[in-house]
């Protein structure tokens, strides 16, 4: 019974077709509260499409899915209130200051002025951005922008945060720091759903799934997957699976 309550994402044969093309083909999986769920796949494997359906941005062609207990067909408004999102493109406004960005996103998520104020101070403290608060985001280094971007995505304490290749273009050290933030969020009970092309990041996830040609080929913990394929790194697991893919860029 306990297990039942703690599922925050439930997908059953979720499918999206664009004409004859099946972008996402009957994927089924469950994600639990506080879990860090890695969503892997080569370019064109159908990750983005699947993620868009889960975020309520696009409606599925068939299958079932609930996010935080809300249906992806009918309750997209409720879903949007309960999720955070950070995209592969950098998702803050470059010509607003750090503080203005935080205030803006707090504002459109409907937080109260007091809440925004206290959250802003807390965030600046945690990220060590106090002295940069009134600087334009454009002037920050990429690693900081991404950390800020993540913090903004979880500003309204969503149940789930979707991260679409969040660490593109930064060095491994910065990436590691970024993952510290993810672990903290996960400790607070926020479920993290992350897509990535970096296999060192895949190792950080609790469980990972790998999509090939629109289908979810495997879903397990990184350790189990490595055992199953008799290899030492996630890199090799991914390569063995993705090699068979017919679709690509």
């Amino acid at each position: 019974m306990m297990m039942q309550d703690d599922k925050v994402i439930v997908c059953e044969k979720l499918t999206k077709r664009f004409g004859d093309f099946i972008a996402t083909n009957e994927i089924s999986f469950e994600v639990h509260k506080g879990e860090i769920f890695g969503f892997l796949g080569a370019n064109g494997a159908g990750k983005t499409t699947a993620m868009r359906m889960l975020c309520g941005l696009s409606s599925p062609s068939s299958g079932k899915a609930t996010i935080a207990g809300y249906d992806v067909y009918t309750q997209t408004e409720q879903i949007k209130k309960n999720i955070g999102y950070m995209s592969q493109k950098f998702s803050l406004y470059e010509n607003l200051t750090v503080r203005e960005n935080i205030e803006f996103f707090g504002g459109i998520y409907g937080l109260s002025d007091q809440k925004i104020k206290s959250k802003t101070e807390e965030l600046l403290q945690v990220l060590g951005l106090k002295s940069e608060a009134n600087k334009l985001v454009a002037s920050l280094p990429l690693g900081w922008k991404q950390k800020l971007s993540f913090s903004v995505a979880v500003l309204h304490e969503p149940k789930i945060v979707f991260l679409d290749e969040p660490t593109g273009g930064v060095d491994p050290v910065t990436r590691r720091q970024f993952w510290d933030l993810i672990y903290e969020a996960s400790d607070r009970g926020i479920t993290v759903f992350v897509t990535t092309h970096y296999m060192d990041e895949a190792e950080y996830c609790n469980r990972i799934s790998i999509m090939v040609d629109g289908k979810m080929e495997v879903l397990d913990t990184p350790a189990n997957l490595k055992n199953r394929f008799h290899v030492r790194s996630m890199d090799e697991v991914f390569y063995q699976l993705a090699r068979g893919a017919k679709r690509g860029d």
């Binding site: 999102y85 995209s87 493109k89 950098f90 998702s91 459109i108």
Partner: peptide, 13 residues
């Protein structure tokens, strides 16, 4: 172009 539109569309706004 900058990708912020997606963020807005995912928000409850």
């Amino acid at each position: 172009e900058t990708g912020t539109m997606e963020i807005l569309l995912v928000s409850p706004f």
